[in-house]
Amino acid sequence: MSDQFDPNLYIGCKAYNGIQTSYGYVPSKGAGVAFCVLFGLSMVAHIAQFWWKRTWWCSVFAVGCFVELLGWAGRTWSADCPYNSNAFMIQISTLIIAPVFFTAGIYVLLGRYIQIFGKETSFLTPKLYLWIFCTCDVISLVIQAAGGGIASSESSDPHGNPDSGTHTMVAGIVFQLISISVFVYCTIDFFLRIKRLGQLQSFTHGPRATLTGAMVLSVLCIYIRSIYRTVELAQGWTGYLITHESYFIGLDGIMMIIAVGVFNVCHPGWLLPSNSEAFLPQYRKTSTNSDVEMIRPRV
C-alpha cells in the first residue's frame, strides 16, 4: 500500500487502480450478501428451533451464525471500499473465531450421547468433555482474536508489519485443529465401545443415524476449513490462497454454512429424545441360544 494513502479517508470508496488492498483483491459483494442471507436464515431458524424444543445448549449454533454474519457483513462493506480498515478488522476477527461456537455444540452433542448410553461408553464423563474441549475452544478463540486484532491494526498502517499477528492466528488455528483431532479420537473411541457393548445398531438407522451423520459432516467441514486457514495464513498476507477469494468462499464460507446448516435440517431437539429408552432400543444374543432379546439400556 502506498505510503501517501490513508485508507480511512476513503470510506465508501471504490478500489483505486494501482493501490493494493489488504485482501489482495476487492471482495465480491454478491458473495458477501449471499452468505449474510444464508447465515442470517440459519441463525433465525436455530433460535426458533432451540426455543421451541427447549434445547438451550443449541444456542451456540445461533451465536456462531451471528458471528459469521458479522464477518460477511464486513466483507460486504469492504466490497464498496476495500481500504476500509474497520471493515477489514471486523471480518478477519469474526470469521476466524466463528467455528469455535459450532465445535462447542458438537462437543455437547457427544456428551449427550454418553449420558444416554452410559458412562462405560467413554473414558471421559460428559462434564469433562465440556470442561476440556470448551476450555480449548476458549483458548483458541482468545489466541485467534488477539492475532486477528494485531494483524488487522498493523495491516491498516502503511508502515505496519502484520506478521506477528498472523503467526498468533496460525497458532490459534493449529491449537483448534489439534483439539478437534483429539475430539475425533474420543468420538471414534465412543463408537468402538458402543460396538463392543452390542449397541452399534442404535446408530445404523432412524433418527440416530441421521443425527450422527450430521455430526460427522459438520466435523469434517470444520476440519477442512481449519486446514485451509492454517495453510492460507502460513503462506502470509501475499500468499496465493489468501489473495484468491474463490478459495475463501469455497473452503471457508461454504464449509461453515454446511457445518451449521446441517443442524437446522437434523436438529438435535427433534432427533435426540430426552428419554433414553425411546432413543435406545438395543438387542443382544442370549448366552443360551441364538435368539435376540431386548435389554434395558444402562444409563
Rank of each mutant, 00 (worst) to 15 (best):
F133I: 00
H167I: 04
E120C: 13
L128K: 09
V142C: 08
T168P: 09
I92A: 02
S164Q: 14
F102N: 05
G74K: 01
L95C: 02
M89L: 12
L110Y: 02
I132F: 00
T76P: 05
G111V: 07
S152C: 06
I150G: 11
Y185A: 11
S202M: 14
G206N: 04
Q199S: 11
M89P: 10
G147M: 06
N84K: 04
G105C: 02
I106Q: 02
L177S: 04
G198Y: 03
G149P: 10
P162E: 08
S179I: 00
F183H: 00
L130A: 12
S164Y: 13
S85L: 13
I92V: 14
F133T: 00
H205I: 10
T94M: 00
S153I: 07
T125N: 13
S93W: 04
S152P: 08
I97W: 03
I96Y: 03
N86S: 15
K127Q: 15
F117M: 09
F175Q: 04
G165D: 03
I178F: 08
S78M: 05
E120A: 13
L128W: 13
K195V: 11
V100F: 02
I188E: 12
Y107M: 00
Q144P: 04
V108W: 09
Y185G: 10
A145F: 07
W77V: 03
L128A: 10
S181G: 12
F117S: 03
C136G: 10
F203S: 04
P99E: 03
R208D: 10
V142L: 10
S93A: 14
V108I: 09
I173N: 00
Y113E: 06
S85Q: 13
Q91G: 05
D157V: 09
I90F: 12
A145I: 03
Y113R: 03
F203A: 07
L177R: 01
T94Q: 00
Q199G: 15
I97F: 01
R112T: 03
S78D: 10
T187N: 11
S156H: 05
V108H: 07
S122W: 03
Y185M: 12
T204C: 11
T125Q: 11
H205Q: 15
S202K: 15
S156R: 08
I180P: 00
T204K: 09
H167N: 14
M89C: 13
S85I: 10
Q115A: 13
I116G: 07
Q176M: 01
I97K: 02
C186N: 14
V182S: 03
A98N: 02
M89Q: 15
